[in-house]
Every structure is written in C-alpha cells, then in structure tokens.
C-alpha cells in the first residue's frame, strides 16, 4: 500500500515542473523517446509517479538521469504536459535529495536566496582584496591557493558524501546487493559516460550538440588542469600559456553558443530556462572569458594596475566553486555518469 502525496506535485513545481498534471497517460512520450527501452521505460511512468507523489520510488529511480532531454516527448505530447521539463525538474529535485547539506534544494527553490549567496561571494572577494590592499601578487597567489583548496574541499565534503547518498538511495535501499566484482567491471561505464556522454548520441539529431558538449567537457577539464595544477595565470611556461589560451577560448565560445540557444529558445531543450540553467552556462562562459582576459592582461603587463579584472575573475570563480559546482547544475555531470554506472551494476542478467 502506497500513500498518495498530493504535496509532491506542488513541491516539484518549485523545481520548474509545470502542467505535468495535464497528462492523460497516453504514453506517446515513451513511444517517441529514442532512449527509452522496454526494460527502462520513461518518461510516462515518472510523470505518473510524480502526479501520485510516490516520493520514495522516485528517490530511488535512476531514470531521470537516463534522459538527455532532446525534448521530443514534449513536442509530441497531445496534452502539452511537458514531460521533458518534468524529467529535468526531477533531476533538479534528485540533486536536492542527494545533497546532505540541503543548500541545493534551497537554492533551486528560492531565487532571492540564490541572489543573496551570489552577492555574499562578491562581498567576500571585495573584503579579501581589501585586506590584501588590492595588490596583484598576493591576491593572485592566494587566489590560486583558494582554487586548489576549494576543489578539494567541495569534492570531499559535499560531492563525495552526496554520491554516497545517491548510491544508498538507488542501490542499497531498494535491496539490491551487487558483488564487488560487478562494481569493478562496471567502472568502465562510469568513465566512458563521464567524459564522453556517449548515451546522448542516442537522441535523434543530437550529433552537433553532443559534439559541442564533448568539446566543452574536455576543454573545461583541461582548463581546470591548466589553472589549478599548472597555474596558467601565473606561469611563464610558453606551452602551458598557449594551451591555456586555446582551452579558455573553447570554453567561452562553446558556452556562448549555448547561451545563444537559450536566448533563442527554439529547441525544446533550451525553451524552458530556469535560473539554475542560465547561471550554469553564463558562469561557465564568464569563467573561460575572464580567465582569458586576465592572462591577456598578464601577458601585456597591465594586470598590476588593473587588478579589478582579476577580482572579477576571482568572483566568478568563487561563485562557481562555492555555489554552482557543489549545489547547482554542475553536479549533473557527476550524477549522470554515476547513475549509468549504478544502473549497470544493479541490472538483472
């Protein structure tokens, strides 16, 4: 016996879902979805579970991560119930459920809170600069240290526990008990999907977008490597310098294209943009772009007198590392690949 929870559909609306109660369960969405299979059918089933508010089952479901939002389901929905956006909202909701700190949910649900958090980051950077008397050298040096520290902390304190929670909800609580061998065998899946997003190619007409995304992921990770490990902004090594330029250009030009898509809002995937979506693409763009400008200023020796440009970059960085990465859309990158990994290891043979 499962209890119906009518509050759930109202809660889900705060995560961006809308009109999904209009669904009359014809199943067109599942039929047109190029990723849904007989054993793993969605989105209709999840629309139904959401309407009924069967939280526990949704919490344990990995299906929301199996969807790459081509939007065909929403296009062909005779009731305009937007199943695609429901799947997206479920991903946001799951992100909030996995997050042990609860910040994720707060920031998804409340735009004012998000703005306050972003402003706090700005204030922090200004105070930090103030205490360092607006001198470029110490600021940039500490900035680099912060970067390394932030990445480590966020991963250990937030992301790792959250993935463990996800594993508990999806694998342990439903009662499956995969052997260690399966964990090891499945590991390949994890890395392939994390770095290639291979599954997204299964969506119709998605090659260009997939390719852009692929380039962006590689570009972003390389940029991370360049700045954090090789200290691109401070290095004198010409190879690192040039490589950093290239990857930063890749990051901001691809994200610029994504932002443009969202503004045009022509395709189903970019039609319904929530603050978290805007934030993700715009801040990724700003990350790449401000890093590029900072390095440019360094190379033409203007940075000493124009430390403000680095402070802008640092602000973006802090907001990115403290808000968007741990609590925002960035985590989808991890959860998606882990979802496919868990799916693989609990799959019945």
């Amino acid at each position: 016996m499962t209890k119906i929870d009518r509050k759930f559909s109202k809660e889900l609306k705060k995560y961006g879902a809308f009109d999904f109660t209009s669904c009359y369960n014809c199943g067109n969405c599942t039929a047109v979805c190029s990723l849904a299979t007989k054993d793993e059918a969605f989105p209709r089933e999840l629309v139904r579970l959401s309407a009924l508010g069967i939280k526990e089952e949704i919490e344990s479901s990995l299906k929301p991560w199996s969807c790459y939002y081509c939007g065909e389901c929403s296009t062909y929905c005779p009731q305009s119930a937007n199943p695609g956006e429901l799947m997206m909202s479920l991903r946001r909701w799951l992100t909030a459920r996995y997050d042990w700190t609860g910040f994720s949910g707060l920031l998804y649900r409340s735009l004012p809170l998000l703005v306050v958090a972003m402003l706090l980051a700005v204030t922090g950077v200004i105070l930090f600069a103030f205490f360092n008397k607006f001198e470029a050298k110490p600021i940039m040096h500490l900035g680099h240290l912060f970067e390394m520290f932030a990445i480590g902390t966020v991963f250990v304190v937030i992301l790792l526990p959250n993935i463990i929670r996800m594993w508990y909800l999806a694998v342990i609580r439903p009662g499956t008990n995969p052997s260690l061998a399966r964990y090891i065998k499945g590991a390949g899946t994890l890395f392939i999907h994390m770095f290639t997003q291979k599954r997204a190619l299964g969506c119709d007409n998605n090659q260009r977008r997939w390719f852009e995304h692929f380039i962006l992921v590689i570009g972003y990770l390389t940029l991370l490597l360049m700045t954090v490990v090789f200290d691109w902004l401070g290095t004198a090594n010409p190879i690192i310098t040039v490589a950093g330029y290239i990857v930063s250009i890749i990051v901001f030009s691809v994200t610029a294209d994504f932002v443009k898509e969202r503004i045009k809002a022509k395709r189903e995937i970019s039609r319904h943009s929530r603050p978290s979506d805007w934030l993700f693409v715009i801040w990724l763009f700003l990350m790449g772009f401000t890093a590029f400008i900072v390095r440019l200023f360094v190379d033409v020796d203007l940075i000493e007198n124009n430390i403000w440009i680095y402070l802008i970059h640092l602000t973006v960085l802090v907001q990115w590392a403290m808000i968007i990465v741990p609590f925002g859309k960035w985590t989808h990158f991890l959860y998606r690949s882990f979802a496919l990994y868990f799916q693989e290891i609990i799959k019945k043979r």
Binding site: T2, K3, I4, E45, L52, I54
Partner: peptide, 15 residues
Amino acid sequence: VRVKDILSGKRELEA
C-alpha cells in the same frame, strides 16, 4: 480510500 491504479501497474494506493 484504497484504490488500485491501472496507470501505475495496478499499484495499491491509499489516500
């Protein structure tokens, strides 16, 4: 109210 829901695999629901 206890009811079986055809659309979610005859799941037994309660409200």
